[in-house]
Design a protein around this nucleic acid. Structure first.
Lengths: 113, 113
DNA sequence: GGTCCCCCTTACAAAAATGTCGGTACCCGG
DNA sequence: CCGGGTACCGACATTTTTGTAAGGGGGACC
């Protein structure tokens, strides 16, 4: 969760809210519309069920995404971006594009093995 | 350090290279030109000497910044962005602006106390 | 009845990130 | 000789993040 209540700059605040290994990836998957828990789980490669839940909870608490529970059997839960979340996605897009442009370069870097 | 050699998308790669609590902040400070170790240490509020060194080493290894050692006494070391680093900064700018716009909102969120 | 799917939850464990403290080498000025 | 400033290293401790395993309640399918 968020740890500070003051930040030295906007970037600092942004990284606190969407930093970490998974949050941005989760948000990213929701660009094209709502997804169910299971769909998210399958799309975000490598994430464990538990961690996905934790990330979703935090993103929800921060107002970046919305959780809609359908009282059905079997249960259905849909996650979608809020307006706030969408604005964040837009702000992250250039970073994503940068990463895409340089992905090969980055993958070629020596690991800290 | 970098942990993977393949990424699911550009954002994934970007976050791996500049994610974490400090890297982006360090890069950010270098926007306006080179800084010495001590200057960086003073500007990046809250970072410890050791952690700053670790971050600088990693950023250097990734080719995002350049370390220039002046053989003087007392020693002088200057850190500056490489072209690669500058391109990353540019890609992070919208995120920084987003954070700035929403900084008050973010600070007002409940902490996980 | 057994088993599957769904969306979680809890207890526990490992790994990664971050922090603290002390020390090094150099020279200078007092 | 003592202390100050610079840039850094190493051992260690703590905190944070991420992961693993197991279970649960409610149908549905065979």
């Amino acid at each position: 969760m968020l740890k500070r209540r003051t930040y030295t700059c906007g970037l600092d605040a942004a990284l606190d809210i969407m930093g970490g290994k998974w949050k941005a990836l989760v948000l990213w998957e929701l660009i094209d519309g709502p997804l169910r828990f299971g769909e998210l789980r399958r799309r975000v490669a490598g994430i464990s069920e538990r961690v996905l839940i934790l990330q979703l909870r935090e993103l929800e608490k921060c107002g970046l995404l919305h959780r809609e529970l359908y009282h059905q059997v079997p249960p259905k839960v849909e996650y979608s971006l809020t307006g706030f979340g969408q604005s964040l996605i837009k702000a992250m897009t250039p970073l994503g594009e940068w990463g895409e442009r340089h992905q090969a370069t980055i993958e070629a870097l020596e690991r800290g093995d």
